[in-house]
Simulated assay, not measured.
Amino acid sequence: MSTDEEFMLHALQLAKRGFGHVAPNPAVGAVIVANNGRVIGEGWHERFGGLHAERNAFAHCTDDTTGATLYVTLEPCCHWGKTPPCTDIIIEKKIGRVVVGSMDPNPLVAGKGVQLLREAGIEVVTGVCKQACDDVNRPFFHFITHKRPYVILKYAMTLDGKIATRTGASKWITGEEARFRVHQDRNRYSAVCVGVGTVRADDPRLTCRIEGGTNPLRVIVDSHLSTSLDSTLVRTAADVRTLIATCEASEEARAPFVAAGVEVARLPGADGRVDIDALLDYLGAKGIDSMIVEGGATLAASFLEGGFVDEVNAYIAPKIFGGEGAKGPVAGQGVSDPGQAYRFGAPFIVQLGSDVMLRAYADRGAEGGDN
């Protein structure tokens, strides 16, 4: 591993500290290294509207930065937003070399930041640890390009592909390490989505239960507005932001939910069910850059059939439930031929105690399927 890669990986760890606090901005880390190889400043984008990573790094640096190297996981911005351009302070501080992980797809930047630095006589190296830097900001890249959330389909299943026993019992398929990872993701991503069937069956909280974590927006897809007013999600809506997407037209039917603090969005589709396409546009307009779809099997099918799934996180436990009546993670009609399968790239494997998590990204260039 090169020295540049080592410092960039350090910057990446800093960037991840912004998870749950910076969306819909990107998570960015920055490290300033003197010519003798000593780190003299570091920082990350800590919260939406706050200083960018580069400016935080300079704010925590008391040494002379003339000729130093700046490592930053994302191309420095060159435009005014909630804060001044980062390229300005990099030039002002007389940095001699800038090493960049990902290029910024934001049209306001998109190579212009690197160009300005080079025009100022600063050496710029791009693409260091690019894949790792890109992965950290997949939701941001998707959101800035499509103006709608990056969608992660998540489920836990047994070795024989069951998400519950024949009686419907599902707690717990995976162990504590896997469940902790789920809460880390609820902190990282902006929303979590379930169908009304999951609300009725499990009465979930859908909160982030890790210290210092941020609760995601809780989204219920409920075409006929049959969610119980006594459900945990409705009872806690005054404290944790909650949205119900429905086809229900009656203001009288919606009123008790609104009174409980629930945001109700009427998004009817032509088939009498919630229009998922319209839901994603609605969330995007509200700045929701990412969403985990956690259940159930019918909702998973709706997202897959529409081609809306960008990533799958499949948690697999070394257990077998068996049973013809035990459900799998995806319902719906399904495809009639293997060639029509929803395609994803080769999965990455994450070991979580005795369980594993397979992460696969949508392969929209593959033949067959809508995804």
Rank of each mutant, 00 (worst) to 15 (best):
Met8Tyr: 11
Ser228Pro: 04
Glu305Val: 00
Ala326Phe: 08
Val109Trp: 04
Arg254Glu: 07
Lys147Met: 09
Ala331Tyr: 04
Pro139Met: 01
Arg266Gly: 06
Ala366Asn: 03
Ser170Pro: 06
Val128Ser: 08
Glu248Arg: 05
Ala317Met: 11
Gln333Lys: 11
Thr73Cys: 02
Gln184His: 08
Ile95Pro: 03
Met291Thr: 13
Asp281Pro: 05
Leu243Ser: 08
Pro107His: 05
Val221Arg: 07
Pro85Met: 09
Phe140His: 06
Leu299Val: 15
Thr165Glu: 06
Arg205Thr: 11
Leu108Asp: 02
Val309Lys: 04
Gly261Trp: 01
Arg97Ile: 08
Ile320Val: 15
Ile320Lys: 11
Ala110Asp: 14
Arg241Tyr: 02
Gly197Lys: 00
Leu153Ala: 15
Pro318Glu: 01
Phe257His: 01
Glu75Ile: 06
Val293Ile: 15
Pro85Thr: 05
Ile220Arg: 04
Cys77Arg: 04
Pro216Phe: 03
Lys94Ser: 15
Leu117Ala: 13
Val151Met: 13
Thr87Ser: 14
Asp63Ser: 14
Tyr282Ala: 02
Val125Ala: 09
Ile244Pro: 02
Thr198Leu: 05
Trp80Cys: 01
Asp277Met: 11
Pro24Phe: 01
Arg273Met: 14
Leu14Val: 00
Gly18Ser: 01
Cys247Ile: 05
Val128Thr: 10
Ser170Ala: 15
Thr207Lys: 03
Asp370Tyr: 00
Asp88Ile: 00
Glu311Ala: 13
Asp64Tyr: 09
Leu267Glu: 07
Gly295Met: 14
His10Tyr: 10
Val192Ile: 15
Arg148Ser: 14
Cys61Tyr: 12
Cys247Gly: 13
Glu324Gln: 08
Phe180Lys: 10
Lys93Asn: 12
Ile152Met: 15
Pro318Asp: 06
Thr236Ala: 09
Asp202Gly: 04
Asp202Trp: 04
Val28Trp: 00
Lys171His: 14
Arg188Met: 10
Asn25Gly: 10
Gly18Asn: 01
Ala23Ile: 05
Gly296Leu: 07
Glu42Gly: 01
Ile173Arg: 11
Lys319Asp: 07
Arg181Ser: 12
Glu251Val: 03
Gly261Glu: 04
Asp88Glu: 14
Asp355Glu: 06
Leu116Ser: 13
Gly175Cys: 04
Ala120Lys: 01
Ala259Pro: 00
Tyr189His: 14
Ser228Thr: 02
His146Phe: 12
Thr69Ser: 15
Met357Thr: 07
Ala238Gln: 02
Gly269Leu: 05
Thr167Gln: 14
Leu51Met: 11
Leu153Gln: 12
Gly37Asp: 10
Val151Asn: 10
Val350Phe: 12
Ile288Phe: 00
